[in-house]
Design a protein around this nucleic acid. Sequence first.
DNA 1: TTTTAACTCACATCAAAATGTGATTGCGGT
DNA 2: ACCGCAATCACATTTTGATGTGAGTTAAAA
Lengths: 221, 221
Amino acid sequence: MRRISMYLCTMNSIHLAIIEDDKIVRDSLLAYFILKEDIASVTTFHSMEAFTEDMKEHIAHKPHIILLDIQLPGMTGIDGIPIIKNILPDSEIIMLTTFEDSDKIFSALCAGACSYLSKQSSLSLIYECVITVKNGGSYMSPSIARKITRFFSKENSVSSPLTKRQTDIVHGLVDGLSYKMVAARLDISIDTVRTHIMQIYRTLNINCKGELIRWAIENRV
Amino acid sequence: MRRISMYLCTMNSIHLAIIEDDKIVRDSLLAYFILKEDIASVTTFHSMEAFTEDMKEHIAHKPHIILLDIQLPGMTGIDGIPIIKNILPDSEIIMLTTFEDSDKIFSALCAGACSYLSKQSSLSLIYECVITVKNGGSYMSPSIARKITRFFSKENSVSSPLTKRQTDIVHGLVDGLSYKMVAARLDISIDTVRTHIMQIYRTLNINCKGELIRWAIENRV
DNA sequence: TTTTAACTCACATCAAAATGTGATTGCGGT
DNA sequence: ACCGCAATCACATTTTGATGTGAGTTAAAA
C-alpha cells in the first residue's frame, strides 16, 4: 500500500483509492492523479485483501471514489464490490478493466459499481470520469454503454413463438389471473383457455404456470 | 422540412436527421452540424409526422443517425422510436431531451434508442455523441447514466421481507418446482412447504403462486 | 426465565391447474 | 377445393395449490 496526500484540501477535494495489480498501471495512475488539484489523496493497493486490511487499520481515512480492477490476485474486483460497499457504503466504485464481457459489466453494476471504464481509456478520460462521479453522475466507455443500451432494447429479444391469442392469455396469467378470470377477461370459455395453455406449454417446452410466468417476464412478452 | 447537404462525402460521412419542435434549437443544431466535415447532410423536422411523410417520399435518403426530441407536437418521440426503427432499421437514434425521468429514459432505451442526451449538453458534446454512435458506441449524459446504473444496483431493491427458509422455498417455486418437489429439495414435509407458503402470501399480500413468482423475479430475490 | 419468531409437521377440504381426447369454425395459402 | 393452423368449446381425470386449524421444537431476544 502506498499513500500520497496533498494537504491542501479544497472544497471538492477527492480522496481516491486505486485497487490494481499491475504495478505499471497503478503507478502511472498514481503519478497522474496526485498532480491534480482536486484530488486530495491517492492510495493504491495491489489486491482486495491489501485494501480491506488497510481499511481495518485506517478506517478514518475513507476514500470517496475507488478505481477497481477486475482481474486481481486473490479475490476478484467484482467479488470485492459488496465488501467495499459494506465497509464504505458511501464510496463510489468505478470499474477500470480490460474486460468488456456483458456478464462482467452487469455483475459489476448489479453489485453496486456506478461506472465502468475500459482500461484503454486515456488518463484524462479516467479523470473526467472521477469528476463526473464526484458530481453525482456516472460515465461508461462507449462500447460498454452500448452493451447496456442493447440490454434494454427489445431488438435482442427474439420474436415470440406464440400466437396473438396465446399472448393474450399469457398476459392474463402474468397479471396473476386464474384460468377462470382469464376466460372472463377475454370473454371465452375456460376450456378454451385450457386448450390454449396446453398448446403454449408444448410450444415452450414447459409444464406449469410458474415456468410460463417466468418465461414471459424474462422475455418481456 | 429543411435539408442541407455538403456534397463532399468522405469515408465516414454521416447523414443526420433532427426531429425537434423548437425552431431555435433545431436551427442552432442545423447550423452547427452542417459545418462539421464528417456530417454529409443534416435534415430537420418539427414532428414525427413530418419525418415519416418525408421518408415515404425520399426513402432513398436514409439518415444514419437521428437526434430525437421527446416532447413533440402530435406523436411523442418515444412513440416515434418503433416507427423510425420500422422504416429505418439500421439507423441509430439519439434522444435529445430535457426529460430525465427514469420512466422516459427506460421507455426510450427499451424502444431502441441507443443514446440519451440531456438538452443541457453543449453542441460539441452532442457532436461527440454522434461520432461515438457512428463508431458503434453509445453515450449517456452523466445524470442519465447514473439512473441507469442505479437501475442495476441492488441498493435500491429493498431488503427482502422474507426469512431465510421462506426465500429457499420461493427459489424453488421460481425454478418451476411443485410443492412436492420443493419439499424434496429442502428435505422437509410438503405440509411444511404449505405452511411456509401461506405465511409468505400473508407477508407479501398476495394470493397465488403466479404472483409470488412475479414478485420474486421483479424484486430479484 | 419467559417470550417470541422461525421452522417444523399433520389432517382436512375445496378450488385450480395439468393432461388427454375429440370436435367445430374460419381464414389464408397451394 | 383442399389443407393446415388458429381459435373455439366440451367432458373427464388426476395432480397440485390454497386455506384453515392445531401443535411441537429450537434458538435467540427481552
